[in-house]
Amino acid sequence: MNLEIIFFIVFGSVAAISSVLMITRNNAVIAALYLILNFASLAGLYLTLNAQFIAVAQVIVYAGAIMVLFLFVIMLLRPENEAKFLQSNPKVKVFAFVIAGFVFLQLMYIIFFSRPSNIITKNLDASIEAGTIESIGYILFKDYVLPFEAAGFLLLAATIGALILGKKKIN
């Protein structure tokens, strides 16, 4: 057992269990807290994959900014708790789980049929090199400048849209 396996098992099981707990909680605040736990364990998984920059950005952007926004909206709206899971219209929910299981079977079929590990094996040096801020920044400002500018424009548009939607009366 080397450290990578231990980290994968710990963070992966925390991510899986917290996602299941998230969709089964009645209270929205507790669901949001489980989602934060899920994001944090995903950041740990990114670190085991040698993606340092993405791990830091995950904690700052997702677990920090986005979830604070969610918790603020929950605090402002105070949504009533739902009925217990599977008590209100159980037929629809069983149907939803059938669909989800079907999608899962399809994905499993693709993964085990194509077996990507036969052709993709990890090269540790290249993997570490790919995750550094230096290489990501180099490729971002050299080959992907236009998408970068478009992303900035998208953020501007989203800010203006959120402001207008949040106004009480639009003149």
Partner: peptide, 27 residues
């Protein structure tokens, strides 16, 4: 890489099940 893909597929279907079953728009 299969381990990560399976974990990712599992989280994706949990998300699908959540979208289809929950009634609270924020969740």
């Amino acid at each position: 890489i299969e381990y990560y893909l399976i974990l990712s597929a599992f989280m994706f279907i949990v998300g699908i099940a959540g979208v289809l079953t929950r009634r609270n728009a924020i969740i």
